[in-house]
Amino acid sequence: MVTTIPSAHGEVAVGDVLRTSRTYTVDEVREFRGLSGYPDNSEPRYLPYLLVVAPLTELGGDIDYLSGRMTWAVTRPVAVGEEITAELEITRLEPGPGVTKIAFDARIRCGDEVVVSGTSKGVVLVGEGARR
């Protein structure tokens, strides 16, 4: 039997790829700076690193993911206004009591160029606090 987990995109299994795109504005970068505790109205050149990977956390939220470990490599800074596309490819699902262990590969692309690549593993909540 194939292990699946619920997601905002329906049931997903190993091999499935979740994908989302976003473009951050100057105002959103400023709001993020405020949220970080470093309010700064100067014109940002680059997206804060954490906003570059933010669409991946959106995909994580779609599967109620709690991260245990994540490792990323970043090839270049991403300019404010560039569209970024996150891809999360599930590589392992292992059901257990209350949680399902999960591992995935992840990428952030600007067009065809991969600017962030990495892996993560953790758990998906399947009991209290879960989506369903």
Binding site: L35, A54, T57, E58, G61, D64, G129
Partner: peptide, 14 residues
């Protein structure tokens, strides 16, 4: 800002 509306963030755990 991130789009991460995971249930444990929005609904909470316990």
């Amino acid at each position: 800002l991130t789009g991460d509306f995971g249930a444990h963030h929005i609904g909470g755990v316990a």
